[in-house]
């Protein structure tokens, strides 16, 4: 347990001192401020919609594939028709 805590403390120190990595959208630096300004601005909703736009169409296509009526009779119906025809031929013979 002590080793685990030591490892966490060491990791926290390394991460805390990695100032060159402080350019993420949620860090505190001039670059991070610019990144935030580029993401969370008046165009955020538009960018969100644009990123998301293809997916409702793709989901609609999936729904169409699932529910689109079949053009040919189901295989079991074909089998049943064949069996019926066979029985009918046997009766005639």
């Amino acid at each position: 347990m002590a080793r685990f805590i030591n490892a966490i403390v060491l990791l926290a120190i390394f991460v805390g001192q990695a100032s060159q990595a402080r350019a993420c959208p949620f860090c505190e630096s001039t670059t991070a401020d610019q990144v935030r300004a580029g993401i969370f601005n008046s165009d955020f909703v538009y960018h969100l919609g644009a990123s998301f736009a293809p997916f409702p169409i793709l989901i609609a296509i999936l729904i169409l594939i699932y529910y689109w009526p079949s053009r040919r009779p189901p295989d079991l119906e074909i089998d049943q028709l064949r069996r019926d025809a066979h029985i009918s031929e046997s009766e005639h013979a």
Binding site: A23, P25, V35, G38, I39, H47, S51, L58, I59
Partner: peptide, 24 residues
């Protein structure tokens, strides 16, 4: 650096959607 990070954010969001589609 700024532009790459902005794009990285939106690429991440795009991956969220692809993850959701895979889960579906």
């Amino acid at each position: 650096v700024v532009n790459l990070e902005i794009n990285m954010f939106w690429d991440g969001l795009f991956h969220v959607f692809t993850w959701v589609m895979t889960a579906v």
